[in-house]
Simulated scan of single mutants.
Amino acid sequence: MWLVTVILGIACVYAGFVLLAALLQTKMLFPVQVAAANQPPLPPSAERLDVTTPDGDRLIGVRLGTSSQSKPCLLGFGGNAWNAAAVALYLHGLFPDREVIAFHYRGYPPSSGEPSARALLADSLTIFDHLQQERTRPLIAIGLSIGSGVASYLARHRPVNGLILVTPFDSLKALAKEHFAWAPTGLLLRHQMPVIDLVKDQRTPTAMIVAGRDTIVPARRSEPLRSVIPNLVLDRTIADAGHNDLYDHPAFVSAVREAVAQFEAASP
């Protein structure tokens, strides 16, 4: 009888952990408060952008730099703990002579609403359409970590001049299995972002940059993308970089600048 009791106890503990992970998945995937608490100060030249989604939420963005008819605008989509100010400042530091735009994800203050994978993907199209209505411009989409899924979705549905994927994953489902192998993630995961399907047979010039020591998005989760992207113009692995220290690595900076230069050279 004691063995049955032990087995039932273990089963209850397991079920509790699974339930907790299922209930907290949105908070873990979209750490809104972390992103909101780390907003760096913007220079006086920064411009605030405001876009309303079809369902009535407001997306707040940041524009840095000056627009140019000859140089593409850089539209950045950050990682899940990034905010628009951090993304815009980082990209502007790499490209001070270009127009850089980033938006706070839905539900990330000061944007309104509730974050979800579906909302982030749909909002990328709303942002693109608003920017093109404002003024037609060439545009390069840059996705960092989870932002690589958002940027891939945009490139799938709208004409961009180039796509840069930084520490991308093949799908959120596969990535969830990496971190929660003990849970039935396929049944419980409510947020879907099938990046591999978005980039498959997509002719947009694409660059992929991977961190060799990444434990958050392991390099093996990026590997499947290589075989399905038909126009992979740059494929770089920064061997001694991790997921978070990648952005300070000189080799990463060089790779991003090389990718943008290739896109510009190929543009009509």
Rank of each mutant, 00 (worst) to 15 (best):
L121V: 02
H157A: 09
V217S: 09
L144Q: 09
M193F: 11
G143N: 05
T206S: 11
P194L: 06
A174S: 12
L120A: 04
L225C: 07
V210H: 02
K200P: 13
T206K: 09
N231H: 14
A183K: 00
F180K: 04
I209C: 05
T237N: 14
R226G: 10
V199W: 09
Q133P: 11
W182F: 15
R213T: 02
R135N: 01
H157S: 08
V195E: 06
D235I: 04
Q202K: 14
D235T: 03
P205S: 13
A239L: 15
G162I: 07
A117K: 13
L234M: 02
P115Q: 10
L144P: 04
D123Y: 03
N161K: 13
P224D: 14
L131G: 05
G147V: 03
N161D: 15
V233T: 14
I196Q: 14
L165M: 10
V166Q: 09
V217C: 12
A176Y: 08
S111Q: 01
H130N: 03
R226A: 10
R203Q: 07
A211W: 03
A207M: 04
L198R: 13
N161A: 15
I196M: 12
K173A: 08
R213W: 04
S116K: 12
I216K: 10
T215K: 12
A155T: 02
L154K: 04
L165Y: 04
I196R: 13
I209L: 13
L187H: 10
A219F: 00
N231S: 10
R156N: 13
W182G: 01
L131C: 07
G143R: 00
D240T: 05
A211M: 05
P230F: 03
P138F: 10
S148T: 12
Q192A: 14
D201N: 15
Q133F: 14
I164C: 07
A219I: 06
A241H: 03
I127G: 12
R158C: 03
P184T: 07
I142D: 01
V233L: 15
M193C: 11
L175W: 05
Q192R: 15
K177D: 11
S222P: 12
L225I: 05
G212T: 00
G147P: 12
S145D: 07
I164H: 07
P224E: 15
I196W: 08
I216W: 11
R203G: 01
L121S: 06
V150K: 03
S227F: 11
A176T: 08
L139N: 02
